[in-house]
Structures are given as C-alpha cells and as structure tokens.
C-alpha cells in the first residue's frame, strides 16, 4: 500500500470516528458557539468539509488522473 493510500485511510477512519462516540461526545456540547452554530452542529459541518477536502486531495494526487485519456464526446446527451 502506498503512503498516499495510508494517509487517506488513516484520515478517513479518523473522520468517521469523529462523528460517533467517544470523539463526538467531546465536541457535542452546545458551547462554544461557532459562527452562531452550537458546537455539536459546527463540528459535524467541519467534518463534512474535512471529508470533502480529503477526497478532493486524493483525487488530485491520483496518478491515473493525468495518464488516462478522456473518453470521446458522445453525440447522445
């Protein structure tokens, strides 16, 4: 397994664990309010962004992304 995959899997598991007990229990209170949102909701939104940027990074660093040719455009929609 490449280092890139190991980093990805490690962070993915971390994000998943951060959404359930016990990690979410540490960040599941009402205070501190973040941008007007209770911490319990702000934490979930933060994990949503973390997951988005993690997969985006994995996609951008995919070695096959630049090597595989795009399919020819079909006439059908």
């Amino acid at each position: 397994m490449t280092l890139r995959k190991k980093i990805f899997l490690g962070l993915l598991v971390t994000i998943q664990l951060a959404l359930i007990w016990p990690i979410y229990a540490l960040f599941g209170d009402v205070h501190l309010m973040v941008l007007g949102l209770p911490l319990s909701l702000a934490w979930i939104i933060a994990m949503l962004f973390a997951s988005f940027f993690l997969l985006l990074w994995y996609y951008w660093t995919d070695p096959s992304r630049t090597s595989s040719p795009r399919p020819p455009k079909s006439k059908r929609p």
């Binding site: 998943q16 959404l19 909701l41 979930i44 939104i45 994990m47 949503l48 997951s51």
Partner: peptide, 10 residues
C-alpha cells in the same frame, strides 16, 4: 437530527 448529515459525510 445531525445524524442525517453525519452518515452522508463518509
């Protein structure tokens, strides 16, 4: 209700 957001994250 945050669970509805949480499961779609991963």
């Amino acid at each position: 209700a945050f669970y509805i957001i949480a499961y779609g994250i991963t």
